[in-house]
């Protein structure tokens, strides 16, 4: 039973960390919005899905790579990768702002209760998914291979591949930049202020609408970056991939303590590792079961998640 885990431990660990970082970035989309609005952004899964298409469109339609073309090299490689990343972040960021305008802002202005925005968020997420389904004729979309998956080195029997290394380093970097932005920038401080006390922040002259839009934008950018890494590693997307990934990332956010940025980080990583270890030891059919048993156990002893102090205290 454990022979697979022992035999392939490092391969699994590296795969789990790469997957974990993708979760980290998506769960930022949930956690940021929750931190500020105290509401779950149900459309975040579809924002992620739209983000994956940003990369596909850049490599396939702008740079004209096909399934059979050679992977890019040198400066061209960097150019294509960076513009794909930027495009995915842009697409997802704009989609997030659109979601905020359509599903949240108007209802918030009218002073409706929270459940109304919950439903409108679910509504727009269905709309986003259906639009993509119609645009892609319900078909899966393969992404051309831009980055050759070279095996860099072998450590303890595990192949260290270029795409996983790039994913881990770049995702960590993006996470770090966003975290600093929230911590140090003027806008970040405003976001934290609104998160602590909306009314007081308003009285101090914080522009509430701008703060909320920025929150959605930052969450969207992180989620879009996740879309880019997802395509780089898996080279595949479909109109319905958002649900599974969104569910996992949401679980990660709750595991780490929703509303808490550091929580999203550790929640995402532990979920990624937990998933691959559980699949290897018990069989993939037990993956979801194991994840949710662990989630229930954690919530039993730490009801606010692993890092679940109130958002305000950690951010202050």
């Amino acid at each position: 039973m454990f022979s697979v885990l022992i035999d392939q431990f490092w391969s699994l660990t590296i795969a789990g960390i790469a997957l974990g970082f993708i979760y980290v970035l998506i769960s930022l989309g949930y956690t940021m919005v929750y931190g500020v609005l105290r509401m779950i952004n149900f459309a975040n899964s579809e924002i992620f899905m739209w983000g994956t298409f940003g990369t596909v469109i850049t490599s396939r339609d702008i740079f004209h790579y096909t399934q059979t073309s050679e992977p890019a090299k040198g400066a061209k490689l960097v150019l294509v990768l960076v513009s794909s990343l930027v495009m995915s972040m842009l697409v997802a960021g704009l989609t997030a702002i659109f979601v905020e305008f359509v599903a949240y802002r108007r209802l918030r202005m009218k002073g409706t209760n929270r459940l109304a925005t919950l439903i409108s968020a679910i509504g727009i997420s269905i709309a986003l998914q259906e639009i993509m389904r119609l645009l892609t004729h319900s078909r899966p979309v393969g992404a051309p291979r831009i980055l050759e998956k070279i095996i860099l080195t072998e450590i303890w029997g595990a192949n260290i591949r270029l795409d996983t290394v790039i994913t881990i380093i770049a995702a960590a970097l993006i996470f770090f930049v966003l975290e600093r932005f929230i911590k140090l920038s003027r806008m970040g401080k405003a976001i934290r202020a609104v998160s602590m006390n909306e009314d007081a922040a308003k009285l101090m002259g914080v522009n509430l609408n701008r703060v909320i839009t920025t929150t959605f934008l930052v969450g969207g950018l992180a989620t879009g970056a996740a879309g880019f890494f997802y395509i780089t590693v898996f080279e595949y997307t479909k109109f319905n991939i958002g649900f599974t990934m969104g569910m996992a990332a949401f679980t990660a956010a709750v595991l780490g303590g929703i509303g808490n940025i550091r929580g999203a980080f550790f929640g995402g990583l532990s979920l990624g590792l937990l998933e691959v270890y559980a699949s290897a030891v018990l069989g993939t059919q037990w993956k979801a079961v194991t994840v949710f048993i662990v989630l229930v156990l954690v919530l039993l002893f730490k009801p606010n998640g692993l890092f679940g102090e109130a958002v305000q205290t950690t951010r202050a």
């Binding site: 022979s3 697979v4 035999d7 392939q8 391969s11 699994l12 795969a15 789990g16 997957l19 997802y230 898996f234 595949y236 319905n240 991939i241 649900f243 599974t244 998933e275 691959v276 699949s279 290897a280 069989g283 993939t284 059919q285 993956k287 979801a288």
Partner: peptide, 20 residues
């Protein structure tokens, strides 16, 4: 053998089993 949900995109655990 293995049984993998049809929404899976990360097959690394299955591949680990195949290699072992």
């Amino acid at each position: 053998g293995d049984s993998v949900p049809n929404t899976t995109t990360d097959f690394s655990p299955t591949i680990a089993k195949i290699k072992t």
